[in-house]
Design a binder for these strands. Sequence first.
DNA 1: ACCTGAACACCGTTCAAGT
DNA 2: ACCTGAACACCGTTCAAGT
Lengths: 192, 192
Amino acid sequence: MRADAEKNRSQILSVARDVATEHGADVSMRDIARRAGVGLATLLRHFPTREALFEALLCTNLDALTRRAAELETATSADEALLSWFRELVTFTQGYRGVVAMMAAAHTNPDSALYASCAAVHSAGARLLLRAQGEGTARADMNGDDLFALITALGWAVDQPSFAPRADHLVHLVTGAILTGRPGSEVGKATS
Amino acid sequence: MRADAEKNRSQILSVARDVATEHGADVSMRDIARRAGVGLATLLRHFPTREALFEALLCTNLDALTRRAAELETATSADEALLSWFRELVTFTQGYRGVVAMMAAAHTNPDSALYASCAAVHSAGARLLLRAQGEGTARADMNGDDLFALITALGWAVDQPSFAPRADHLVHLVTGAILTGRPGSEVGKATS
DNA sequence: ACCTGAACACCGTTCAAGT
DNA sequence: ACCTGAACACCGTTCAAGT
């Protein structure tokens, strides 16, 4: 009874993960259902909306990023923590094309299935920013909303095939705008 | 004979302009045809693709932006020119939600109807950047591709309803990353 | 030449019918 | 309880038929 339902659910998630990494977040739900070998209505029963499906798909990653922020908060200096976390978040979005657009839309919509995860990521970033600002290593005239906007904007940019090759450098440029490294210290210098 | 065709064409463009400013660039072509009072096939005859329609819709604006760059090149200092032009471009994209995504996709695809206009904007920006770099007021470790990426990324961000209210400030932050104003000179300082 | 309705293959949503 | 096919209202593409 419920055994096959569970099997369907995990099968759907497995297929969706593959398809999403390969073709992006705007694959047709019908296509996912087809490849998973279930009816479309079955998929919609488990995940009534695309966002619900991706919430199940990404919650592990997003929770990990939120926890990672807490780790970095105690492990390294404020500016290094912010920089590392920024990079990891952008790297994550590179894995799933199109999810950053979903996250940007979801983070202010409490009805979205992705709302909670996005809000957690958002406030984790805000904490890192605040700490760096307290140390004077991040510019004072921005807040968590700005940080989230810049991260998602950059995530969107590196989603574009034409900009993807310059991803690392674009991250370098934008983090340079956030961190107020003294000239010569070059906190955000590219390591490659 | 050709009189009604011309009438249809201008009617389609007029309606499309209204609809695009109100509902964004991903309105259905069918809907545009309906509101214009023509058959869908007629719309597709005039503009075989969505990009062709928007090329006709935006070429005036995009050409103006390209010419504006040339004006600024002789009118003001290199850094002010780059800053003003950056702002004008972002302001333009705010008027048509979703076009910046089309532009980002088109600017490396010669088959796109928007390719020429986008390439012109792209190189106009590259010229402004190069001049500022020559004067030492823009950071040397970026190029026209980076500038175009940052502009479109910012244009995408301010397209998002949640980020739109902070548009001016986000522009301030990103231009701060590009222009190497000496501390205290605050070239990119918000004027509001 | 130009326009048009209709057929086509898609999409996501909904629901009655099956076990 | 859970699954499924089918009907529905959309979408963009294509084309034969009309003037």
